[in-house]
Amino acid sequence: MKLIDIVDKLGLKVFSNSDKLNEIEVTGGYTSDLLSDVMGNAQEGQIWITLQNHKNVMAVASLKDLAAVILVKSIKPEENFLKQSVEEGIPVLGTDRQAFEMSGELYKIFN
């Protein structure tokens, strides 16, 4: 499924790379605030749901070829995080919902 369809369906905010939503293919999601957990277990093409708000999130997302990052609970990405996101071409998205609700809604789309 294209990232743009997920953004539309779930009413997500787009903080960066809005021009890339059309190209990115999403295979599912992964919810975690532990970077090593995501490093070890997330799969290419997944959307990462987290409350971690720093540049290293983008390093992990890029190394794992993730589709996008969703920041939960109305968190706004810090400047370095956003900058890195533009460099890597991986969109940072946002929602007012908490991780449990966000994961549930994304899960429904894929199951």
């Binding site: 090593s36 957990d37 070890g40 987290t50 720093h54 290293n56």
Partner: peptide, 12 residues
């Protein structure tokens, strides 16, 4: 707090 240090590094 940054989400590191979960004791998964060397096992990974």
């Amino acid at each position: 707090e940054m989400g590191f240090g979960a004791g998964m590094g060397l096992p990974n």
